[in-house]
Design a protein around this nucleic acid. Structure first.
Lengths: 137, 137
DNA sequence: ATCTTCGCTGCAACAATGTTGCGTTAGAGC
DNA sequence: GCTCTAACGCAACATTGTTGCAGCGAAGAT
């Protein structure tokens, strides 16, 4: 476990601190998107503000992306490899389960191309599905 | 103006109070989705809590729906006619402009049907586009 | 291995937003 | 107009987002 996390941090020119290793490790182990509360619960000792800044840093570097899911809480998930510091290419849909409140990335569903009216310039598109997931049926 | 608003409220068995008339009127006049802050700014005298509850009531009755736009702020827009107390059918995409921070409903773009993996049950789907809108180019 | 530097951490403090309880006010029907 | 109850508005608190700053620790140089 350790090495993959450290290598990933180094490849983004980030210092390999305890907090960052813990948070990143959580993401790599998790099958679904994580919210701040969720992370705080799993890493009991973590400082709220540090977590806030860690997530912001990760997002700016293109390691994680926000996963809007309509729950009102911001969640984050690991980016796929083609994300960069400058642009997120988050082309899969997110599914939010209203029972367990988890958000999973649906890699099999891609966000469709849309043709916008004249004058609009599009930067990103997100497809959000909500309902009940496998485990909660 | 008055009459349409009052009729709409009555058709949902809601008392026609000053606050509700003001808020609903704003929605009917607005071309884009409104956030709480936005509404408070336009209706200076309005009470923050009352607005919160008014929006919640409207949403429960199916008059307005939340418009997730990735801005981190919850926004609301008038529902189309087929919305009801029990289910929202919000089949158009939303476009969020990162410059003016407005969210407009793109009635011309419909959310595509998706085929989910085994075991998932879907209740709603939202398509969120973000970029720069007509006016901000 | 130790030192130096600078980024990261963690505390304090504050702003914005979400939420509930409760006494008062005002709409709707009589 | 009177009564009844829903809606309002204030207080109070919870949660989340955000910045400043002093001290700590990771990375590279000596």
């Amino acid at each position: 476990m350790e090495k993959a996390v450290i290598d990933l941090l180094k490849s983004y020119q980030l210092r390999t601190t305890t907090v960052r290793k813990q948070v990143l490790d959580l993401f790599m182990q998790s099958k679904h998107a994580l919210g701040k509360t969720n992370i705080e619960a799993q890493l009991e000792e973590i400082d709220r503000i540090t977590l806030y800044r860690t997530l912001r840093t990760f997002e700016q570097k293109g390691i994680i992306h926000e996963a809007v899911d309509g729950s009102g809480k911001t969640k984050y998930a690991l980016c796929s490899h083609e994300c960069s510091e400058h642009a997120h290419h988050d082309h899969h849909a997110h599914f939010y389960c209203s029972l367990c409140e988890n958000t999973v990335c649906m890699d099999s569903i891609t966000v469709p191309e849309v043709s916008l009216p004249e004058g609009f310039r599009i930067n990103s598109a997100q497809l959000i599905l909500s309902g009940v997931c496998q485990n909660c049926q």
